[in-house]
Amino acid sequence: MAFNRELVQTLVFPPVTQTVSKKDCQLYALSVGLARDPLDRNELPFVYEPRLRVLPTMAAVLCTSGHWIADPALRIDADKALHGEQAVRLHRPIPVDTPITGRSRVVNVWDKGRGKGAVVEVECQVADAKGTPVWTVNRTAYLRGEGGFNGRVQPKTEAWAAPERAPDAVCDLPSTGQQALLYRLNGDLNPVHADPDVASYAGFRQPILHGLCSYAIAGHALLKSVCAYDERRFRSLSLRFSAPVYPGETIRTEIWADRGRALFRCRALERNVEIIVNGVFEFEAEGHA
């Protein structure tokens, strides 16, 4: 049975209010691999509370609409839906111990064609109690096999191409075999990341790493290589997921940076498979005094 396109197209989600604690920030940072070396003084502030700093990519998991695809009324096979693209734009630093509210809605449904799939884009705008914007998140879900309903075609965007030179930086960050089980404690309990039987049904040899965990690992590589761990320089991070990551694999991020903007791509090193493409990172080139 085809997905309920009419219902999906009109989805507006209830507001989600959240107060982010220091513990939330520490758990998130640990779950994406920070402080693997507990003596690393660059990473320790993201997991240790005296002068706690917040990873900017945490915005992707806060005040969201949750695992909305699993709603039976939508008639979507949630186990076969894939995370397509992800973008976060910060307007202000992520506040701690302050209520913030996210308002999510479906902004686009695109038809990739019969035998292919459909793409659903959800936007979440997050603001503080005074209504001041804090960040905006855009993400797409790729619904395998749901295309061919004579819907709108996704417009073409500017072609992404790596510069014809060696990367300015290459950063290898390993994941662990249990990383998906730790990362799911941030709130994404989709069983494809934990249950071997569900993963097999979805076509994977084992549970896969969350796309947003891979997103955060790429963000870590950029924060380390481009911003010298100064999270205040983060402006926006967008990318497209091109293949799943299996827990335990090393993610290599290749970076070309110039004047407040960096292009990047990532691969699973052990399989030599590109897992993230079309990466664009915007940052404050000079940092803050």
Rank of each mutant, 00 (worst) to 15 (best):
R233M: 03
I255W: 00
Y48T: 06
R144I: 05
D197G: 01
Y215C: 01
R235G: 11
E146R: 02
L185Y: 14
A159D: 04
V12E: 15
V88S: 02
G33F: 02
E284M: 14
R144L: 02
G84V: 10
N272I: 08
L27T: 05
P207L: 03
H220W: 05
E164C: 02
D188T: 07
L27A: 10
P72K: 12
V226W: 05
A81C: 05
A180N: 11
E254A: 05
T57L: 13
T176Q: 10
L39W: 04
H193D: 04
G33W: 04
A59I: 11
S175A: 11
T64G: 15
L55M: 09
R114H: 11
C213M: 07
K116P: 15
A70Q: 13
P99S: 13
T57Y: 03
L209A: 08
V245N: 08
V20Q: 12
Y48H: 14
D172N: 07
E282P: 03
G279K: 06
P163G: 08
T140C: 08
F3S: 07
S214L: 02
G66R: 08
H193G: 04
V12R: 12
V8F: 07
K130E: 12
L237G: 01
L185N: 14
W68L: 09
F234N: 05
S175L: 09
R139P: 05
F283N: 06
D230W: 06
V96N: 10
C63Q: 08
G148R: 01
R261C: 04
S242P: 00
C63M: 01
D195I: 07
Y183T: 03
L11T: 09
V12S: 14
L209C: 04
I275V: 12
H220C: 05
G279A: 09
F204N: 07
C25W: 02
V273I: 04
D197H: 11
H83F: 08
R261W: 06
K130P: 12
D24A: 03
V245Q: 10
Q86D: 10
R144H: 03
Y48W: 12
T17A: 09
S21M: 06
R235A: 14
S214M: 11
H193M: 06
D71Y: 03
D168E: 11
I276K: 06
G84A: 14
V126T: 03
Y215E: 01
D79H: 15
Y229F: 03
V32D: 01
A162W: 03
A262C: 02
V170T: 09
T176P: 03
V54S: 08
E274Y: 07
C171G: 09
T157V: 12
V16S: 13
